[in-house]
Simulated assay, not measured.
Amino acid sequence: MQSRRQKRLFAVLLVIGLLTGAVAAMLYALQQNIDLFYTPSQLVEGLGKDKIKPQPGQRLRIGGMVVPGSVQRDPDSLKVSFDLVDTGPVVTVTFEGILPDLFREGQGIVAQGTLVDQTTIAATEVLAKHDEEYMPPEVAEALKGIRHVPPSQLQQKNSDAKPAEGRY
Rank of each mutant, 00 (worst) to 15 (best):
M135T: 11
A142Y: 02
S159T: 06
G17W: 08
L99M: 11
V93R: 02
L47H: 12
R147N: 13
P40G: 07
S77G: 03
P54N: 13
Y38S: 10
S159R: 08
S152I: 14
V71I: 11
L102M: 14
I146D: 09
L60R: 11
G48H: 07
I109M: 13
K157N: 04
T87A: 06
Q155P: 01
V67W: 07
V67F: 06
G69T: 05
E138V: 12
F10N: 00
E96S: 15
D50P: 00
A24M: 12
T20S: 15
T87R: 14
A22E: 11
L115D: 13
R167F: 04
D117W: 01
A140P: 04
E96G: 09
V110H: 11
E105C: 10
G21H: 08
T120H: 15
D74W: 10
A142S: 10
P163Y: 01
R147Q: 05
Q107E: 15
E125H: 15
T92P: 06
V91N: 03
D86C: 10
Q155N: 10
G63Y: 04
V139S: 02
Q112C: 01
G21I: 01
G145V: 06
V23M: 05
E133F: 15
A11Q: 09
L27C: 02
K144N: 04
L9P: 02
A29F: 11
L43A: 09
K53V: 01
V90Q: 07
E138Y: 02
Q31W: 02
P54W: 09
P151N: 12
Q6L: 05
S77H: 07
Q2W: 05
I52N: 09
V126K: 03
K157S: 08
